[in-house]
Write a protein that binds this DNA or RNA. Structure first.
Lengths: 147, 147
DNA sequence: CTAAGTGCAAAGTCTTTGCAGCGCA
DNA sequence: TGCGCTGCAAAGACTTTGCACTTAG
């Protein structure tokens, strides 16, 4: 059985490799980013850390996200209302399914996407580098408890 | 040959139907939104109108976009960097192909999307209402003139 | 005529930045 | 020990809002 590095270890290693110091604040941020449970916002990350780390500053969260983004280890999901959510667990482009009621974000498995990229390249003559695919809807949970 | 309403007429009509006044400023904004050539930003719209309409205020552009959005007659495309672009020509969800060099936005024709929505619904048990699909790349033009 | 719309400027968000002090390597 | 990082507060970018004036219907 091959030992597999966790996302947390991978990101910390990459920070080290690029000459960045590993501070407690940074560790706390990477820990959350690496899991990205529910795809947290900056505020989510900030508040979560603030519990154990009362001096943590919002600026530090922002700075570290910019840094980790620049290393390609976190995916930023911006929405029209200006909110941003982060995914450091799967930092490569992949589809998201977003519940418009409870804001939960889920990752579906879709395989038809590669074909689509080719289709687009052929039709538009673009060299496609990247994509973003979101589905918006209502999750089974919120559907059930519709008041 | 059936007479087809232009997007401009449709939006103006919808404004009227909902009891909104048709002001010159509003006409100017709708004119640009209806065409949405290159998918303009708020600034684009503002500056374009400012030429013939020096008193036009940014606030008015924002207010009218909010209004037209609420009528479902313009699609707002928010990007991670915080910029927003608008499409009042095709105000329903559809894929976009964006050149990361010249910021041009093109609409490709893709037919495999409906299947994908069904696939997602089956897998996640969400009721999908909406989606957003963007491809990022480099257009043939920018590819050609790569320095 | 009169409620809706406009322009201006002020107030909000959210995010970034400058700077002094702190702490990891 | 030294440079990078943090925390704070101030500055920025973008968007919304309050208010008095204007105007479409």
């Amino acid at each position: 059985m091959k030992s597999q590095k966790t996302r947390f270890e991978t990101i910390i290693q990459k920070l080290r490799d690029n000459g960045h110091k590993i501070t407690p604040q940074r560790i706390a941020i990477v820990k959350i980013i690496a899991k990205s449970i529910g795809h947290p916002s900056v505020e989510d990350i900030y508040h979560q850390i603030k519990i154990d780390f009362p001096t943590m500053s919002l600026a530090t969260v922002y700075r570290n996200i910019v840094l980790i983004k620049s290393l390609g280890e976190v995916l930023e999901l911006g929405f029209p209302d200006g909110s941003n959510r982060y995914d450091g667990n799967k930092p490569y482009p992949h589809p998201h399914v977003i519940c418009i009621k409870c804001k939960k974000i889920v990752d579906p498995d879709l395989d038809s996407l590669d074909n689509m990229t080719k289709e687009v390249e052929e039709e538009t003559n673009f060299k496609i580098l990247n994509h973003r695919l979101d589905f918006f809807g209502i999750c089974s949970n919120c559907l059930a408890k519709k008041v």
